[in-house]
Amino acid sequence: MKLCALSPRRAAIVVAVEDASPTDAVARRLRELGFVAGERVEIVAKGPFGGDPLLVQVGFTRFALRRAEASRIRIDADARETVA
């Protein structure tokens, strides 16, 4: 499942960040920001117009990501849990 398809206020586990090319700077930056395998991630909120941008929390840090960026992040939806 892709991160952009995750429902708000649900947690999941990052599986991988997919590279669009061998030297994909966006994928590399996402990994540098903490989107690495095994890390907990959740969508905190979605923007009002088409759901863009997404407010995403990975670890204790929040980022605004475009849907195109979030679609590069594969998650394990079975590991998700409800966040209080």
Score class of each variant (00 low, 15 high):
A79E: 06
L33P: 05
M1C: 07
A45H: 06
P53C: 05
K46Y: 01
P48A: 02
S21I: 00
R80G: 15
R62M: 06
A5P: 00
V17Q: 02
A16G: 04
L65C: 00
I75D: 12
L6H: 03
A84W: 14
A68T: 15
M1R: 08
A64V: 07
C4D: 13
A20G: 12
R31N: 06
A12T: 06
F49H: 08
D19R: 14
D52A: 09
E42Q: 14
L55P: 01
S7A: 11
F49N: 02
I13S: 10
I43Y: 03
E18C: 08
L30Y: 05
V44W: 01
E42Y: 07
P53S: 09
A84P: 15
A12F: 04
I75C: 10
P8N: 03
V14C: 10
A70L: 10
R10V: 05
R62Y: 06
E81R: 15
C4N: 12
I75W: 11
V56Y: 02
L30I: 10
I13A: 04
S71E: 10
A12R: 06
P8W: 00
G59R: 13
R29D: 00
S71Y: 00
E69L: 12
G34M: 08
V44F: 02
V56N: 08
G50Y: 01
L65F: 11
T82P: 11
A37R: 13
D19H: 01
A27I: 04
A70V: 11
R40L: 12
G38Y: 07
F60A: 15
E69T: 10
R80L: 14
L30N: 00
P48R: 08
V14I: 13
G38C: 05
A84Y: 13
A27C: 02
G47I: 01
A84G: 15
A45Q: 11
G59M: 09
G34R: 09
M1S: 08
V26G: 00
E42R: 14
R62D: 04
D52N: 14
E32F: 10
A84H: 14
I73A: 08
K2N: 12
M1A: 09
V17E: 07
L54D: 05
L6S: 02
V83C: 10
L6F: 01
I13F: 01
E39A: 15
V83F: 12
A16I: 09
R31H: 09
P53N: 08
A25P: 03
R74G: 03
V36G: 05
I13Q: 12
A25E: 10
D76R: 11
R74T: 12
G50H: 01
G50S: 04
A77M: 06
E32L: 09
A70C: 14
D78Q: 13
E69Q: 15
S71I: 07
A16H: 12
P8Q: 00
D78G: 14
I75H: 06
V26E: 07
L54W: 11
A45D: 05
G34P: 13
R10Q: 08
M1I: 04
R66P: 12
D19L: 00
R28W: 07
I13H: 00
A77G: 11
D76F: 02
S21M: 02
A20L: 14
D78Y: 08
V14T: 09
R29E: 10
I73G: 03
E18L: 13
A25Q: 13
A20W: 00
G51H: 03
G50K: 06
A16S: 15
E18V: 14
D78C: 10
G59C: 03
L3E: 04
D52G: 01
L55T: 12
L54G: 13
G47C: 03
V44E: 06
S21Y: 02
